[in-house]
Amino acid sequence: MTLLLNGAPQEIAGRTLAEALAELGFSGRIVATALNGDFVPARKRAETPLNDGDRIEVVSPMQGG
């Protein structure tokens, strides 16, 4: 299916958020996730199904003021 990952189209095979993150190379990273604008805690990624056209945001620490 096609997702929007951080605003860019991305083809993935995984059916859950956890599978998609592993497939995209985020394993072991300190990241937080949102699905269609709603926060998804790390512990719920494995039970969060994905659908074609979903918007996923994956964020990590950065400098800020």
Binding site: N6, G7, L24, G25, F26, R29, I30, V31, A32, E57, V58, V59, S60, P61, M62, Q63, G64, G65
Partner: peptide
């Protein structure tokens, strides 16, 4: 500190943290 979109290959956020 803040948050930004992380790209899989980059990992800049990890070194900053």
């Amino acid at each position: 500190v803040s948050l930004r979109r992380e790209s899989a290959g980059e990992g800049a956020g990890q070194s900053f943290w």
